[in-house]
Nucleic acid binder design. Structure first.
Lengths: 257, 257
DNA sequence: TATCAGGGCTCACGGGGCGTGAGGGTCAAG
DNA sequence: CTTGACCCTCACGCCCCGTGAGCCCTGATA
């Protein structure tokens, strides 16, 4: 007699009870009758209206629009639907544009990965310093060669963002070293050792594995030998290249062997 | 020195001042510095970050996601973009489905316009009662023919929903007439006259113009003559067809001439 | 008949991304 | 010193409910 309760309607139509309450509150879907106990009872007509509501909601209409559409006798459904169709078309075009933008961005990012190689020349290009690599290898042998290869392999997958992050950390370490040098701290002081720990971790990250003592020392030596590294460090602070190299050597001997 | 104010940034980037306040509130974009007066000042770096934010916002990321993307050093932009691309694809597919649904609905609605003709056979089909029309025309002449044509033209544009609304009103009137008949009210009583006013208005709506006395009376007579109408009315209440016809005739004579 | 599960009800807050005042300080130009 | 254009901080509103909290109803069972 008195129709379906909220829960039953909820199950039938796959909406939440709260939603039915809400639709009642805003006058979008009122129950056919309300019992003396306050219970809402819905009839066949309300179920049909709910179907209409859900259909329009699917189409992206606001609840207020839906209310107007369903209530206004003279409302032109056809025009409303056509207008909505146009909205959807516009959205689709917009999405296509966004996808194109994303594709371009992805292409750029992948381009960056290669660009990073060139950007790395800002002081960290391992690719283009075959000569100095050779020196290192000559001094330290095949093991060193392997370390260098590993480093190159690890960095090949980098993107600009990775590189930037690395640079930031490297800058911080270098700044600390410069200060230590200016402050006259010995290369095996506690402060410098802490920096070396970061340096070692940083190289470990860029190589994708911790650098063994020999490689760490070798890299330090390279900072002195390679004019590009030398320029980088000494340009920041006179004597910095030598200082760092000494600190790395000391650290390697004390903590990596 | 102290950079751009909110308004300047707003103009430069085409966002609202409130938006900048909001981004500051949620920590998404903090000004480079804040003056002693509380003014926000943005620098070049903040402008660049804002561009990034707007770009990602365009792509539909939530502000929280954008914050994470921009802040997390190790965040994988490529993966995020690809994931988002997939979301867009899914949305596009969904929209296509919705458009198909709309098209089907539109087709159905247009079909309904024709269906209404058939549905009208439920008692109001003027198309299929040429014989009774002829009778009416014979009795009342060319003017009646014109009324009938007008009615058919008016109803041709109807859709199911219009028709249902009409039916509801007609039902209400018929119920009132049935009650008046049972109660023994005369066909020219005040209550019946009120119902006749509604009846006249209703016919006016369905014809798209008020029915003149002769047409109104003629229609009433048709309720008696046409077995389909007769069945409809007498099925509801014995003698109803005659009663309505009498009421319509009386009303037409008293109020329409 | 008392109990208990499984309903039902009414508040009322939250959340996302700001729009939009209200109410009041600040700055540069005239 | 005034004006007018900016700046600030609350704080509510919108849209569509989700998610409790706290309390009442109902029908079946022990």
């Amino acid at each position: 007699m008195s129709g379906h309760t909220v829960k039953q309607v909820a199950k039938l139509s796959d909406v939440s009870v709260r939603t039915l309450h809400h639709y009642d509150e805003i006058g979008l879907l009122k129950p056919a009758s309300v019992g003396a106990n306050g219970y809402r009872y819905y009839g066949r007509e309300e179920l049909l209206r709910l179907q209409q509501i859900l259909f329009h909601r699917e189409l992206g209409f606001s609840l207020e629009e839906i209310g107007r559409t369903l209530d206004a006798k003279g409302f032109d459904k056809v025009a409303a639907l056509k207008a909505h169709r146009r909205k959807l078309e516009a959205e689709t075009r917009r999405y296509r544009q966004l996808m194109r933008t994303i594709d371009e961005t992805l292409a750029t990012l992948e381009g960056e990965a290669k660009m990073a190689d060139k950007a790395m020349y800002r002081g960290f290009d391992l690719e283009k310093q075959a000569g100095y690599e050779k020196e290192l290898v000559e001094k330290h042998g095949a093991t060193m060669q392997k370390h260098i290869d590993d480093a190159k392999a690890g960095m090949a997958g980098w993107r600009q963002s990775d590189f930037d992050a690395m640079q930031a950390e490297a800058d911080a370490i270098e700044a600390g070293m410069a200060k230590a040098l200016v402050d006259g701290l010995p290369a095996d002081s506690a402060a410098v050792t802490a920096l070396m720990r970061r340096q070692h971790a940083w190289i470990g990250k860029s190589w994708n594995k911790p650098a063994p003592a020999v490689a760490f020392t070798g890299l330090g030596q390279m900072y002195v030998d390679d004019p590009r590294f030398r320029e980088r460090y000494d340009g920041r602070q006179a004597g910095l290249a030598e200082y760092i190299a000494a600190a790395m050597k000391s650290f390697a001997e004390r903590e990596l062997s």
